[in-house]
Amino acid sequence: MEPFQTFEGLVCPIDRINVDTDQIIPKQFLKRVERHGFGQFLFYNWRFDSEGRENPDFILNQPKYANASILVARNNFGCGSSREHAPWALQDYGFKVIIAPSYADIFYNNCQKNGILTISLDADKVDRLISASQQKSLHLTISLERQTIIGNGIHDHFDIDPYRKEMLIKGMDDIAVTMGYEEEITAYEQKHAIKS
């Protein structure tokens, strides 16, 4: 994973509650075995019609939100099944940060383990972000170290678990943490090896 410290990006608002993982990445695209290439299928049933043409009414198809990398959504984002493909699709599409009042627990954990910063903000602050980004292009600067969101008159603070913060800043996942103990693991295995 890449270390996450300060990030600046364009906001795209998804003004819906209970966006589930099947809406984020529909089940028919889960046959792929690699982690990359899912971005083209992100929000597929909303982005495209039944014949595969872009739906001009869906927000990601609007030129104003081209290259957006910060997603702002409503309550219970990422509910539904526990598919890790959902954060893979969001990340592959280009989203680095998600801001919402609440998330489904498994989705929240999957995002963090894949290097996506998920920020929980009060609903009124999310309302303000959604409204501002609908009126005109909204760019935000997110500082994970300072735990701040700044841009266009906005200056908010967010909370994050210290361990999650450290993992994102260092760009480490659980495997990388385990590999940090490689020498100790090897020594233990040698000491407790089964002799034939």
Results as ranks from 00 to 15, higher is better:
I25W: 08
N55H: 10
R53I: 01
I116Q: 02
A132E: 14
G151W: 04
K125C: 03
W46M: 12
E145H: 11
D105V: 00
D15R: 08
Q23P: 00
F7R: 01
F77S: 07
H139Y: 13
G80H: 09
T21N: 01
L138W: 09
R35Y: 03
A100V: 05
T186N: 08
I24G: 08
E2H: 00
Q40Y: 04
L71W: 12
S131Y: 05
F107A: 03
L144E: 03
T178V: 13
E184A: 08
I160E: 04
L30Y: 09
Y181F: 12
P26C: 12
A68S: 15
R74M: 12
D57G: 02
A86L: 11
F29Q: 06
S137I: 07
Q147E: 12
D156K: 05
I24C: 08
M167K: 15
D22H: 05
F58M: 04
A68N: 14
R128L: 10
L168H: 07
F38W: 07
K170F: 01
G171H: 08
G37S: 11
A86Y: 11
V72M: 13
Y108R: 05
E51N: 10
F95L: 12
L71P: 14
Q147D: 02
P26G: 12
V126F: 06
V19H: 00
S143V: 04
H139K: 13
V126R: 03
G180I: 04
A132K: 15
S196G: 09
L90D: 02
L168G: 10
G153W: 07
T21C: 03
Y65M: 08
R16A: 14
M179F: 05
D92T: 05
E184P: 00
N114Y: 04
N114R: 14
W46I: 00
